[in-house]
Simulated scan of single mutants.
Amino acid sequence: MALFNSLEHTTNTAVKKGETFLKNSEQYYKLKTFQVVTLSISLLVKATIIGLFLLIAFIFIAVALSNVISDYLNNKTLGYLLVALLYVVFAIITYILRKSIENSIIKNLSKNFFDDEEHI
């Protein structure tokens, strides 16, 4: 009889520890999901804000550069076309290097999202 009582006590203890483990695991994964979502949204907002300011800066730089080139060539149209051509060259270079850019972004983001030791 003592053997059955001991076995029942051990079984009950194992069940309680298993339930506690499952509850803690669920809380951990909820917290981890919240962390990943929050970091993603934060990264997206920061990138959008920085990107907007850089876009405005590039527009002003492009207009200024176009004016400088058009004054040098005494032809406004040609100045603006040369700057547009410069941006087309940048776009082609970016298109050619797109795989290495994607790989670099994936490596940097994976460090943030999958390195459990730094963010917990």
Rank of each mutant, 00 (worst) to 15 (best):
N5S: 14
N5Y: 01
N5V: 06
S6M: 01
S6L: 05
L7E: 05
L7Y: 00
E8F: 00
E8T: 11
H9A: 14
H9P: 09
T10L: 02
N12K: 00
N12E: 07
N12D: 07
N12W: 00
T13Y: 01
T13Q: 06
T13S: 05
A14I: 15
A14R: 10
A14V: 08
V15H: 06
V15L: 14
K16G: 12
K16Y: 07
K17F: 15
K17R: 14
G18C: 09
E19G: 00
E19R: 08
E19W: 02
T20E: 15
F21E: 06
L22W: 12
L22Q: 12
K23D: 15
N24I: 01
N24C: 01
S25E: 14
S25F: 08
E26Q: 08
Q27C: 08
Q27K: 11
Q27P: 04
Y28F: 10
Y28C: 00
Y29V: 05
Y29P: 04
Y29G: 00
K30C: 05
K30Q: 13
K30T: 12
K30V: 13
L31M: 07
L31V: 05
L31D: 14
L31E: 12
L31T: 06
L31R: 07
K32D: 10
K32Y: 09
T33W: 07
T33R: 15
T33L: 15
T33P: 04
F34R: 09
Q35I: 12
Q35C: 06
V36D: 14
V37Y: 02
V37K: 01
T38H: 06
T38W: 03
T38P: 03
L39Q: 05
L39K: 03
L39A: 06
S40Y: 03
I41P: 02
I41G: 00
L43S: 07
L43T: 03
L44Y: 14
V45N: 04
K46H: 01
K46A: 08
K46P: 01
K46Y: 02
A47E: 08
T48Q: 11
T48K: 08
I49H: 03
I50G: 04
I50C: 01
G51Y: 06
G51P: 10
L52E: 10
L52G: 12
F53W: 07
F53L: 10
L54K: 02
L54A: 01
L55W: 09
L55M: 11
I56M: 05
I56D: 09
A57V: 13
F58V: 10
F58R: 08
F58C: 08
I59D: 13
I59L: 12
I61M: 11
I61Y: 07
I61H: 02
A62L: 02
A62R: 07
A62V: 04
V63G: 04
V63N: 12
V63D: 15
V63H: 05
L65K: 08
N67M: 03
V68H: 04
V68E: 09
V68Q: 07
V68Y: 14
S70R: 01
S70D: 01
S70V: 00
D71Y: 01
D71G: 06
Y72C: 10
Y72P: 03
Y72L: 15
Y72Q: 08
L73Y: 06
L73D: 11
L73V: 14
N74W: 08
N74F: 05
N75Q: 13
K76E: 15
T77I: 07
T77Q: 05
T77K: 06
T77P: 01
